[in-house]
Each structure stands twice: as C-alpha cells, then as structure tokens.
Simulated scan of single mutants.
Amino acid sequence: MDQVIQAAGCVLWRPAPSGRGIEIALVHRPKYDDWSHPKGKLKRGETPEECALREVREETGQSCVLGPRLPTAHYLANGRPKEVTYWSARALGGTFTPSREVDRLTWLAPGQARARLTQARDRDLLDTFRASRSSQ
C-alpha cells in the first residue's frame, strides 16, 4: 500500500472591500492549469496547522488566522492516495508574488469562486464553508 500523501490548506477569505459579504481567494497553478484553494504537502516534522499557514503565505502572500476545521479531502494524486486537511482562514493582509507554482491569485465573491474552481471536491469544500458561516 502506498504511503498516504499528507497535505493541508485553507478556504481563505476576507471581508469584501465593498463592505458587503466576503471574498474567497483562489490560486491558479500553471502546472495543472487549474484554480484551487491554497494547499500543499506537509514538510517533515510540520503539523497540518503549520503547513496550512505556510502554504497560504507561500501561495498567496497573505498571513491568516485559522478558523473552524473543514472536511478533509481524500483522493488519488498521480495514482497515490492523498489526504488534505482544510481550515477556514481569515486573511490578515499581505502581497501576492507570482511564482512557478502559483502564477495568479484572484479574490471573488463566493458564488463566482465556486464557478471558477476546477475540481468538484473544491466546490464541495466551499459549499461546506459557506454553510458553516451561515449557521454561526
């Protein structure tokens, strides 16, 4: 049995500049030509929480504070099982710098973000995030 790839990420949000509602951060990965939530593999000795915070910083330039835990995604990546632990995270500010791994960052209203996400599992995650916010 293959070792499960451990990763972590966030549904990163901020209050909308208009003062009405929120915006969701999505990153574009040129290697896969997809739009997703910021996430990445755990480094040796790193906790999932530390990984999620680091990946958000690396991929979006934003510092953030973790909020409620969201469902863990389980899927195959290049034929290997992968498990991604997610949190809701509020962006605290920062500056995006494009890289080879992530070349674009966009902030969208939740409905627009849902339409832009490439993977169904990322849309499901956003739906869960939205439902958890409306029940608070």
Rank of each mutant, 00 (worst) to 15 (best):
M1K: 05
M1H: 03
M1S: 11
Q3I: 14
I5T: 07
Q6R: 03
A8K: 01
C10A: 15
W13M: 05
R14K: 13
P15E: 14
P15M: 14
P17Y: 11
S18R: 10
I22H: 03
E23L: 13
E23H: 11
E23Q: 14
I24P: 00
I24L: 09
A25F: 00
A25L: 11
L26M: 07
P30K: 05
P30G: 09
K31G: 05
D34K: 06
W35H: 01
H37F: 14
P38Y: 07
P38R: 01
P38W: 04
K39F: 10
K41A: 11
L42A: 06
L42M: 04
K43L: 14
R44W: 12
E46C: 00
E46N: 01
T47V: 08
T47K: 07
T47I: 11
T47C: 10
P48G: 09
E49N: 10
E49H: 11
E50I: 13
C51H: 03
L53D: 00
R54K: 12
R54I: 07
E55W: 03
E58M: 12
E59F: 07
T60P: 00
G61F: 09
G61W: 03
Q62N: 15
S63K: 15
C64M: 11
V65P: 04
R69G: 12
R69D: 13
P71H: 07
P71E: 07
P71Y: 07
T72H: 02
T72F: 01
A73L: 13
A73W: 05
A73M: 09
H74P: 06
H74D: 09
Y75D: 05
L76P: 02
A77M: 11
N78V: 01
P81N: 00
K82S: 07
K82C: 00
T85A: 09
W87L: 05
W87F: 02
S88G: 11
S88P: 00
S88C: 12
A89T: 01
A89W: 01
R90Y: 09
R90D: 10
A91M: 06
L92G: 15
G93S: 11
G93Q: 09
G94K: 08
T97A: 11
S99W: 07
R100F: 07
R100C: 03
E101N: 13
E101M: 11
V102M: 04
V102P: 01
D103A: 10
D103M: 04
D103V: 08
D103I: 05
L105N: 00
L105S: 01
T106K: 02
L108T: 03
A109Y: 03
A109V: 10
Q112C: 09
Q112I: 08
Q112E: 12
A113S: 05
R114E: 10
R114Y: 09
R114C: 00
A115W: 08
R116F: 04
R116N: 07
L117I: 06
T118S: 03
T118G: 04
D124N: 09
D124T: 12
L126N: 05
T128Y: 02
T128R: 09
T128A: 15
F129K: 01
R130M: 15
A131N: 11
A131L: 14
Q136I: 14
Q136W: 14
Q136R: 14
